[in-house]
Design a protein around this nucleic acid. Sequence first.
DNA 1: TCAATGCTTATTGTCGACAATGGCGCCAGG
DNA 2: CCTGGCGCCATTGTCGACAATAAGCATTGA
Lengths: 226, 226
Amino acid sequence: MNEVLADSSRTLADRVFSRLQDDIVRGVIAPGSKVSETDLAGRYGVSRGPLREAIRRLESRKLLEREVHVGTRVASLSFDDLIEIYHVREALEGLAAGLAARLMTAEEVAGLTELLGQHEQQQDLRHDTAYFQREGDLDFHYRIIQGSHNRTLIRMLIGELYHLVRMYRYQFSTVANRPQKALHEHRRIVEAIEARDAEMAELLMRRHISRARENIEQQAQQRSPQ
Amino acid sequence: MNEVLADSSRTLADRVFSRLQDDIVRGVIAPGSKVSETDLAGRYGVSRGPLREAIRRLESRKLLEREVHVGTRVASLSFDDLIEIYHVREALEGLAAGLAARLMTAEEVAGLTELLGQHEQQQDLRHDTAYFQREGDLDFHYRIIQGSHNRTLIRMLIGELYHLVRMYRYQFSTVANRPQKALHEHRRIVEAIEARDAEMAELLMRRHISRARENIEQQAQQRSPQ
DNA sequence: TCAATGCTTATTGTCGACAATGGCGCCAGG
DNA sequence: CCTGGCGCCATTGTCGACAATAAGCATTGA
């Protein structure tokens, strides 16, 4: 899932960028906490030069927030932020699903079907839904996004938006409370893609993400009034 | 239109970022040309440190392409790239128009109406469509995007995608050959927003951008076979 | 004559040091 | 006791120098 490249083939700044991003997304560095350049440079064994380049890139991905002459802090997602992101996801992944239904190769469709089978099997055998909820679900969406064959779309979703989604899941340790339903929706989306029904695939994907958003909105209402 | 901030309030790296981005978008630096860090540093009167930070940020916006130990070159958009971008625009700006119809303040709607009136007047008085084609059209779209009140959406469209669109327009010195039609479509979109008809606004915006894409596809077919 | 190899050189990658700005605590005055 | 101003300090912003890599050229051998 992560673009793992040989360390030697990349530059120091690139490596510290990946590692720092991972630490932020996984919550190793607490959201909202202030990070000092000197500290980070020491932590990753790098000088401040490459580190600053990495910071700038993470800043444009909204994983870090910088204030001039004051410091950098890890982004802290609010529920409102997440709702916004899900609105964008609905539009973009709907597009992706439609394009995937039209453009996915037979191999890609087969791979997607196989992945879905694995998820359903895991679901049946043991009710350990942890994997599916945390990363498996994203695997499924990644495949379809890749299947759109639209590099701009892929970059915006996987390269930018999904890091925020993943960070949110770690931040709130979200337990998706509708795994069976989600899995069923995945099945129907795959069926539409297999049938090369672009409109149906788009519709189902939009609905799928829309329901996930509604689910989050309910959680937000339950938590905030307390 | 551009986020013009007092130079003193920002850091050198930020300023060189803005200036470099502008020079790339406007074609002052030829697309596809290789740019040396030393040269750029000299050109903008900065050391290589801040310059590299700016480069990293422009790289993640796909305005620059970097190859390790080889160099950085200005991105050169292909027609295929642009078609991809327009597919994404269709999805995102459709969303924006729908949200704008629901969420725009009365003041924002009034401002949008006034802007449209200016465009129509310019169109009537003299057939100088240059302004409208180059920047006026974008002004209109900017307003609606801002009207969505979705910061993530605004960032993805105005902060990232639109720089590529603008670069394309300069690169191919596009003469939009359907300004009257576009203006008429703008009028209908505004009417839908004024009526707070979100579905209609989304539909009209999607169709508007879809037609612009078809227009580009035709141009591409005319040029490439030669 | 051509190709392969080693060198040269320009460019990028990295680092440590210096300058500048903002926050924080201390002190004095009311 | 509270509040405002002042100065110190930590942190960020910027710079110049050094190291490492890759492309281009010349040279040499077949």
